[in-house]
Nucleic acid binder design. Structure first.
Length: 473
DNA sequence: CTAGACTTATG
DNA sequence: ATAAGTCTA
């Protein structure tokens, strides 16, 4: 007798219908599929902006499931308790999901899987978030890669499975379990900045992500290698906010990049390399989970970071009023859009950790609160890379000069103009949006005089290099 | 064991 | 020109 009991599909960071291995297999099982999203302890532990953006993504998934005559059941609470309740209510005998790799998600999923299996449930995790499972990529000596380039060389010619189509039909159960109302969750309502402003810069959902990838491949990938480095130019893919919630799969991005490469767009290889940076970050977080919370190189624990997150230099950094134009422009871009150009991320991280001698965890926490494209692995790797405590060789070259960097990468001044309002006769619209996005207490106005540097590029560099020399390890 | 390499840099 | 150090083959 064939099994016709329902199957629960637990969505987390895989909020799409296309190229979704767990969903594809569930639909092929010939049983009713009950898609579920749980506002659980891991979701609740995320920053306000990531939760805000997640809410938009969940809404988009709910709508596309409805369009397939399916639906999305929303529940709030401890993941295991919710799943057990749903199993009981629906008679489901299976709970499937796409695997995650960061410590919070792994701890939850390991416990959930063990408990459900103990209940006799077919609890199963599928690949889908990554091109390469972290345990499938090894150095010749049997370890995981701690340097990016050798990993890239090891994986670049690997055959990546083809993408899977959106299932033609998602079998529905006879009766749907009760669902919370998404609006009642007020996801990210605690975000201390202008929601409308941030929303106007979001591009959410699977359909939008797919067209964004298409537009990038059609118009921008050919100049990607150079244009992606210029913060004042729209030269990046912008896909980070979609990848982080799985609105598009890395496989779809990979194959689109490969096709561009074969069509003679040689710079597409740089895009493929960026996708592998994302893989690298996840492999690191899987093999060394402490990367999200402590110095990856443990001898950096002895380094005298300033750990006071409330001091005025840190506030100036957060509020985009350090008096260093590149730093302030980038921090304001973050406040307004919930994202930041990658060169900006490197510059503000270098300034916070070197010139201001501040513990990178303070920067990581601020990003985790502010970014709509927050990713647990990339954020941790990026901050530790910038700070010098991370898994990369020769960090001593990494004291960026934020003044010469702006001269070099923003020659026409477009980036400064886009995000700084003071001392421009006619500030740009985005620079003015900043003042609608900030909390009142910041007490900033476009009519303010632009501040003098709190720490100059030269003094900060010297202080950082002196501290490295004295560090005694 | 040792040579060669190491994302985005600085002066 | 440089290299305060570490990883990979």
């Amino acid at each position: 007798m064939t099994d016709t009991s329902p199957l629960i599909l637990w969505f987390r960071r895989d909020l799409r219908l296309g190229d979704h291995p767990a969903l594809t297999e569930a639909c092929a099982a010939g049983r009713p599929v009950i898609p579920v999203f749980i506002h659980d302890q891991v979701v609740a532990g995320q920053g306000a902006a990531p939760r805000f953006r997640l809410g938009l993504s969940v809404a988009a998934l709910r709508d596309s499931l409805k369009g397939k005559s399916s639906g999305l059941t929303l529940r709030k609470g401890d993941a295991l308790e919710v799943l057990r309740a749903l199993v009981k209510e629906t008679g489901a005998t299976a709970v499937w999901w796409s695997r995650l790799y960061d410590p919070d998600a792994k701890a939850r999923d390991t416990a959930v899987k063990a408990a459900l299996k103990g209940d006799g449930i077919d609890a199963r995790s599928f690949a889908g978030h990554l091109l390469f499972e972290p345990w499938d990529v090894e150095t010749k000596t049997g370890g995981f890669y701690k340097v990016y380039t050798p990993m890239w060389k090891a994986v670049r010619d690997t055959d990546i499975r083809a993408t899977l189509p959106v299932p033609g039909k998602i079998p529905a159960p006879d009766t749907w379990p009760a669902s919370d109302n998404l609006d009642d969750w007020r996801m990210g309502a605690d975000m201390r900045r202008g929601h409308d402003v941030v929303l106007s810069h979001c591009t959410m959902g699977e359909a939008a992500a797919t067209s964004r990838l298409g537009a990038f491949i059609a118009h921008r990938v050919a100049d990607y290698a150079t244009a992606r480095d210029l913060p004042g130019v729209d030269g990046t893919s912008g896909l980070s906010e979609n990848l982080t919630y799985g609105e598009i799969s890395p496989h779809a991005c990979w194959h689109a990049g490969q096709r561009a490469l074969h069509d003679g767009k040689g710079e597409a290889e740089v895009f493929l390399k960026e996708l592998v940076w994302r893989e690298f970050a996840y492999h690191l977080v899987h093999h060394t989970p402490r990367i999200v919370s402590g110095n990856w190189k443990e001898d950096w624990d002895a380094f005298p970071w300033n750990t006071d997150a409330r001091r005025k230099e840190v506030q100036a950094w957060q509020q985009g009023r350090t008096g260093i134009r590149f730093v302030d422009a980038a921090m304001r871009e973050l406040q307004v859009t919930g994202r930041m150009h990658n060169r900006g991320r490197m510059i503000v991280a270098s300034y916070l950790t070197k010139h201001l001698m501040t513990d990178w965890k303070i920067g990581l926490d601020w990003f985790a609160e502010q970014l709509i494209d927050w990713d647990p692995a990339s954020n941790a790797m990026g901050w530790q890379w910038a700070a010098g405590s991370g898994p990369d060789a020769a960090p001593y070259f990494r004291v960026f000069n934020p003044v010469t960097q702006l001269e070099k990468f923003d020659k026409g001044g477009a980036y400064g103009k886009a995000w700084l309002a003071e001392e421009y006769a006619k500030p740009s619209g985005t620079a003015l949006q900043f003042y609608d996005a900030i909390p009142l207490q910041w007490n900033m106005s476009p009519d303010d005089a632009y501040p003098d540097p709190i720490v100059s590029a030269e003094d900060g560099r010297k202080a950082a290099l002196d501290a490295y020399e004295k560090r005694g390890f």
